[in-house]
Deep mutational scan, measured.
Amino acid sequence: WKITIYDQENFQGKRMEFTSSCPNVSERSFDNVRSLKVESGAWIGYEHTSFCGQQFILERGEYPRWDAWSGSNAYHIERLMSFRPICSA
């Protein structure tokens, strides 16, 4: 599993790669995730830290803005603060 997060939209700004769970992006000096690329595996992104709040399934691909992973939710969530890989047995 591999995911790359960015602190600006369209894959700009600070970037960081992960191959395992991140319970709080702010502990990695990110205020928020504004864009991301899922390089391999599937991940679950969460609205809040500690894997809480609205969940987003993140499959392999590029997500240049928050609405790319938020989709058409009843209330739009511009925040992604934690994530972890989906492990299959």
Rank of each mutant, 00 (worst) to 15 (best):
W1P: 06
K2F: 06
K2G: 04
K2Y: 00
K2V: 05
I3P: 01
T4D: 07
I5W: 00
I5C: 08
I5Y: 02
I5H: 01
Y6I: 00
Y6E: 01
Y6C: 01
D7S: 10
D7E: 11
D7C: 04
Q8G: 08
Q8I: 03
E9F: 05
E9L: 04
E9N: 05
N10T: 03
N10H: 12
N10L: 08
F11D: 00
F11W: 03
F11I: 01
Q12E: 12
Q12C: 10
Q12T: 11
G13K: 01
G13T: 01
K14I: 07
K14P: 02
R15T: 10
R15D: 07
R15L: 06
R15C: 14
R15F: 14
M16Y: 06
E17G: 09
E17Y: 06
E17K: 07
E17S: 13
F18L: 14
F18D: 01
T19Y: 14
T19Q: 08
T19M: 06
T19N: 08
S20G: 12
S21D: 13
S21T: 05
S21A: 11
S21C: 11
C22V: 14
P23S: 10
P23G: 07
N24Y: 03
N24T: 03
N24D: 15
N24H: 02
N24G: 04
V25C: 05
V25W: 02
V25D: 06
S26T: 11
S26N: 12
S26L: 11
E27T: 08
E27D: 11
E27W: 06
R28T: 11
R28V: 10
S29L: 10
S29M: 07
S29R: 09
F30G: 03
F30C: 04
F30V: 07
F30A: 02
D31V: 08
D31Q: 09
D31R: 09
D31C: 09
N32V: 11
N32R: 10
V33Q: 01
R34W: 01
R34Y: 03
S35P: 02
S35A: 02
S35D: 01
L36S: 08
L36E: 07
K37A: 04
K37T: 08
K37W: 03
K37N: 05
E39H: 15
E39A: 12
E39T: 15
E39C: 07
S40W: 06
S40R: 12
G41I: 01
G41L: 03
G41V: 00
A42H: 12
A42D: 12
A42P: 12
A42I: 12
W43A: 01
W43T: 00
W43H: 01
W43I: 01
W43S: 01
I44Q: 08
I44W: 09
I44D: 00
G45H: 03
G45N: 00
G45D: 01
G45Q: 00
G45W: 02
G45A: 12
Y46T: 01
Y46G: 01
Y46P: 03
E47T: 10
E47I: 04
E47A: 10
H48P: 00
H48N: 09
T49I: 12
T49R: 15
T49L: 05
T49Y: 10
T49N: 11
T49Q: 14
S50L: 13
S50N: 13
F51Q: 03
F51Y: 15
F51A: 01
F51L: 03
C52S: 14
C52M: 15
C52W: 06
G53M: 02
G53E: 02
G53W: 02
Q54H: 15
Q55N: 09
Q55W: 09
Q55D: 13
Q55T: 08
Q55C: 08
Q55R: 11
F56P: 00
F56A: 12
F56V: 14
I57K: 11
L58P: 00
L58G: 01
L58T: 00
L58R: 00
L58M: 09
E59K: 15
E59Q: 14
E59C: 12
E59P: 12
E59Y: 13
R60Q: 15
R60E: 15
R60G: 08
G61N: 00
G61V: 01
G61M: 00
E62P: 05
Y63T: 05
Y63H: 05
Y63W: 03
Y63C: 05
P64M: 04
P64D: 04
P64K: 08
P64E: 06
P64L: 03
R65G: 10
R65L: 05
R65Q: 10
R65S: 14
W66C: 14
W66P: 14
W66S: 13
W66H: 10
D67W: 07
D67E: 14
D67P: 07
D67S: 13
D67V: 12
A68H: 08
W69M: 11
W69I: 14
S70K: 14
S70G: 12
S70H: 11
S70D: 09
G71N: 14
G71V: 12
G71S: 14
G71Q: 14
S72I: 05
S72G: 13
N73F: 06
N73L: 08
A74E: 14
A74S: 14
A74N: 13
Y75R: 14
Y75E: 15
Y75L: 14
Y75H: 11
Y75W: 10
H76M: 12
H76C: 11
H76V: 13
H76N: 11
I77T: 09
I77Q: 14
I77W: 07
I77K: 14
I77N: 15
I77H: 12
E78L: 10
E78A: 13
E78Y: 11
E78K: 12
R79A: 14
R79P: 07
R79D: 05
R79S: 14
M81C: 08
M81Q: 13
M81L: 08
M81E: 06
S82W: 02
S82H: 00
S82M: 02
S82Y: 03
F83K: 01
F83T: 02
F83G: 02
R84Y: 04
R84M: 09
R84K: 15
R84A: 11
P85N: 04
P85C: 05
P85S: 04
I86P: 04
I86W: 10
I86D: 13
C87H: 15
C87E: 13
C87T: 15
C87K: 15
C87Q: 14
C87W: 10
S88H: 13
S88V: 07
S88I: 07
A89F: 05
A89I: 13
A89E: 15
A89H: 06
